[in-house]
Simulated scan of single mutants.
Amino acid sequence: MNTPDPTETEEAKALRDAVRGLLAKRSDVRTAMASPLGYDDKLWSTLCEQIGVAALAIPEEFGGVGATMAEVCVVQQELGRALTPSPMLGSAALATQALLATGNEEACGRLLPGIAAGGGIATLAWTGEDGHWSPERVPCTATGSTVDGQAHYVLDADIADVVLVVAGTPDGVGLFEAAPDAAGLRRYQVPTMDPTRRLGVIEFSGTPAERLDRGAYPLARVRDLVLVALAAEQAGAAGRALDLTVEYTKQRHQFGRPIGGFQALKHRMADVYVHVEAARSALYAAIVAALDGDPEFPADAATARLVCSEAFRHAAAEMIQLHGGIAITWEHDAHLYFKRAHGSSCLLGR
């Protein structure tokens, strides 16, 4: 596969350098995941104010910068590379795309500027307890102007300022907005395998909500776009897991030589390298399809999601194996990559 890399323009490179430089100086994964918000709000504010990461996917008329999926994926790769907890995926990607897909200019004009500035965190309640993110199967239903149901695996559920919910109606699936403190709405964080990703449950019981779409809501398109953003995060994390492993095998000596010089370990790292490069190619193909409006985009997005998930799981598993005993300690980051790999492989699943 010889797909040109749409994230290697001069603008994209500058964006990558800016995000990577800031994360290298400021990102502290363990402190962030132990904080009340589950992320470093000061770092997030800096990313939004100085670089504009939350505004990338938002059109200029709604307070954004009107960038493309390529720029969003550049940021996602860097956040994944550093395992930085942030509202980027849930708020700036998933909820933002859900709002834009409504075509509701009033709602977009009211909600998106706050999301773009990073001061408002939005969340989207979509899937049920089975974790099936399907446009046809949603756990919530709307009757008139009220919503009932229980949504699971909701990103930043308990801290969001804007609560959106996908609900079934007599004329199909629609997108609704509920006030965070609305009557009959209950939300709470739940323990997860991946401590770097905050998930929760939102319960609706006769909760007042306003429908935002005008019918024929393109939920499948929303999912496909966010699948690509998630795949970018996975590809970035997989590449970093490989880099850290290679670096360690050059430093660790056994029998008077670096362990990275042993043929068996070279083969294993080469296998991971091939897998990571395949993931990047699948990701780039999906980005190009999204930018070009290719009718094959849904298939390309699903392919990127699958290949990037597999590559990240492979890289994280080999990271633990080739680091040896140190990798199974809490102090080492290998287990965080491993948990993120398996947690993200279940997110947005069909």
Rank of each mutant, 00 (worst) to 15 (best):
G80Y: 08
T7H: 01
R26T: 12
I121S: 06
E277A: 13
A315S: 14
A229P: 01
N2P: 05
R187W: 01
L175M: 05
P191T: 07
G172K: 02
L164V: 02
D194I: 10
I159P: 09
G324N: 12
V75W: 10
F338I: 02
G260D: 07
G260W: 06
A57T: 05
R280G: 08
H314I: 02
A93W: 08
A151I: 01
L124T: 04
G206Y: 01
Q97V: 00
A301L: 02
T196E: 08
L112I: 07
D300E: 11
V276S: 04
P139W: 05
L283P: 05
L230T: 06
T9K: 01
M88I: 07
A14I: 00
A216T: 10
S35V: 04
A229W: 05
L225V: 04
G119P: 07
I121M: 12
A179T: 13
A34M: 10
P6Y: 09
I259Y: 07
P180G: 12
L283W: 09
R197Q: 12
K250H: 14
G293E: 01
V72G: 04
P170R: 02
V165C: 06
D171P: 00
H275V: 11
A122N: 11
A18P: 01
E49D: 15
G343P: 05
I51V: 15
A302I: 00
F297C: 02
A32V: 08
R221S: 10
F262Q: 11
P180V: 08
A311M: 08
G149K: 14
R350T: 05
V65G: 04
V173E: 01
A301P: 03
G200A: 14
